[in-house]
Design a protein around this nucleic acid. Structure first.
Lengths: 356, 356
DNA sequence: TTGTAAGCGTTATCAT
DNA sequence: ATGATAACGCTTACAA
């Protein structure tokens, strides 16, 4: 069918193995003359190596799998982007699976990826579920859990400082003179969500605010959920003068609810959130948020995978988040969404008005 | 190393071939008793088939490749999501490649995917570039170009009605009484961008507006580019009273520029855009936009691939876009970003304010 | 109904 | 420095 290594060897008047040595630069040396003939034959036949066969032989696929809970969520999209970038830089191809918040789909993807003999697996576990755990552990495939931890898993996790970040964001709202700071939280069963709630609570407690003065709404991540949660909070008798929101996506919905309620952000209700997705710079007002170090997360995740391949035992790693001050908290709002978003192309090219 | 088909056969007291027949449901029948023994052995050993070996043997990988120009752009992200969804539903796994607007990376990905013997390839070509064309054509692998057409390609394209959509959006701004309707366009060398410009121009011409009254800025897709383009337009002596924007992403930047200029949307400057990304429902005001049929695009793309596999010749397909009326054009702005976004989870669960 | 064996395209280990 | 050959794990045609 396709043109094989054998065909190249025949045309070059040599053996298939030599073709391998030329292509792979080893493990055995090959004379310059033979190499030239092989290269010519490859060119002439339009030969392309079959990496499936290579994978079978080498039991190494140079493929990594990534399973995320929700493709449509910009935070996971950004995380996926960072991981893809890092994988590409190391010569790996990434298989992407979207669990769509379903434990079943999540497990299906893990199973598929394992059957495909991926060299490693990145998993952002959907809400507490972890039906995939037994299979992945038994396979012996290196894996890393991201953003969230799986109870009982032996694999390392790469996380961010959710508690500290939430505390810092809340403290920042306090420095703007806000006292009634409510919280739009994530689902109860997701680790980063609960850590962010406790960071918020601790900041308020340290500021001497009574527990009874604190309101929290647990809800899904996502714009719509944030919108609905904020509507509840703003309808309370004692309306909050600020809201700490557990994710930028929810915060976009919160902003919308504030404006529909006839209130202004940050004047009537200040907002600070978490994640630092690119879109956060372009809402009105732009969101003050705890920026996650996406590139560093990607690097750390791959490093942990490679360490496991090398047999090293790598512990869980917690990366810091950094406060990004924009308009929603009451800080001055930088024009034009400040810096060009990561990966945004050609943003500084001159623009010119013309006639069509 | 791993547990193989042979091991299962030995334990079940049968031959490796029979194990295949049990797993694949054929092609030969297996007695109920043998099947039970095989299943038990599989369970006991924790056997998992190696699909690399299967792929090599079958010369079918059940893997498809997708190359997009920019992972960070929500439009491509949404398109990717739709395609992944469709591929998953048909039992395919998707390899995702982000060309990051680089022709070189784009070609690298196509080459990698071909080497991995993907059963088909979806390509959203980066700006006019098409360095990958010779290789993919010669490989004989079925492929489809999406969103944009590649000059000289034999493969079918799946597109939307860019001209008609732009025309409809512009006409809609005209019905709101706007006359000075400027245009923020995409890059000059991208087909859908130029088609949208001509749709906008035709609508204005039909309305009797002189060419000299039309202003257009060509720029990159992306929020920041839209922001900078709108700043130019709003600084003109005769300021436009509406802007047709070639993409929602750019429109988000346009909204930002309008608000920074101390103007209000839609009162001073109405905006209509193109794409219908989920985020468009949550800007302030929400964006009136020409919604692309993402799910249908995914379906069409896969259908074209499968048709090619079956040897059928499939022509280019153009899908319709639909006007989504929201606040930015002057229509009433539906509350809370109207319907739950596609793929947004659990959005209608009750929310409740509690103490932490 | 079941066992045997060839072959998918590659790499690595033998000899030469 | 090179040529032959066994193996990777699976599917299927063929023989029994």
């Amino acid at each position: 069918m396709a043109v094989r290594r054998t065909d190249v060897a025949r045309l070059a008047g040599t053996s298939p193995a030599v073709v391998s040595y030329v292509l792979n630069g080893g493990p055995r040396p090959v004379s310059a003359r033979t190499r030239a003939k092989v290269l010519a034959a490859i060119e002439q036949l339009g030969y392309r190596p079959n990496s499936i066969a290579r994978s079978l032989r080498m039991s190494r696929t140079m493929t990594l799998g990534l399973v995320i809970p929700d493709n449509a969520n910009p935070f996971f999209a950004e995380l996926a982007r960072a991981i893809e970038e890092e994988a590409f830089a190391h010569g790996f191809t990434l298989l992407m699976g979207n669990a769509a918040e379903s434990d079943e789909r999540q497990t299906t993807y893990v199973r598929t990826f394992l059957a495909r003999q991926v060299d490693g697996l990145f998993i952002v576990p959907a809400h507490g579920h972890a039906g995939f755990l037994p299979e992945v552990e038994r396979s012996g495939t290196p894996w890393v859990s991201l953003d969230r931890q799986v109870p009982g898993a032996t694999a390392p996790s790469v996380l961010v400082d959710n508690h500290g970040g939430a505390r810092e964001a809340t403290n920042h709202l306090l420095t703007h003179g806000r006292r009634r700071i409510a919280c739009v939280a994530g689902p109860r069963d997701v680790m980063p969500a609960t850590d962010r709630v406790s960071g918020w609570r601790d900041a308020l407690t340290e500021a001497g605010i009574a527990r009874a003065e604190m309101s929290v709404v647990h809800t899904e991540f996502g714009r719509r959920a944030g919108y609905r949660a904020a509507r509840e909070l703003l309808a309370q008798a004692k309306r909050p003068d600020a809201i700490f929101v557990a994710s930028d996506e929810q915060a976009v919905g919160v902003l919308r609810a504030v404006s529909e309620a006839g209130l202004r952000c940050p004047d009537d209700v200040a907002v600070a959130s978490f994640d630092g997705i690119p879109g956060a710079a372009y809402s009105t007002p732009a969101l003050t948020t705890m920026g996650q170090p996406f590139a560093a997360l990607g690097r750390a995740a791959l490093a942990h995978l490679l360490a496991q391949q090398a047999g090293t035992t790598a512990p869980t790693e917690v990366l810091p988040v950094t406060l990004v001050r924009r308009g929603s908290c009451g800080c001055p709002d930088p024009p034009g969404g400040d810096a060009p978003a990561d990966g945004e192309a050609g943003s500084d090219a001159p623009v010119e008005v013309v006639q069509p």
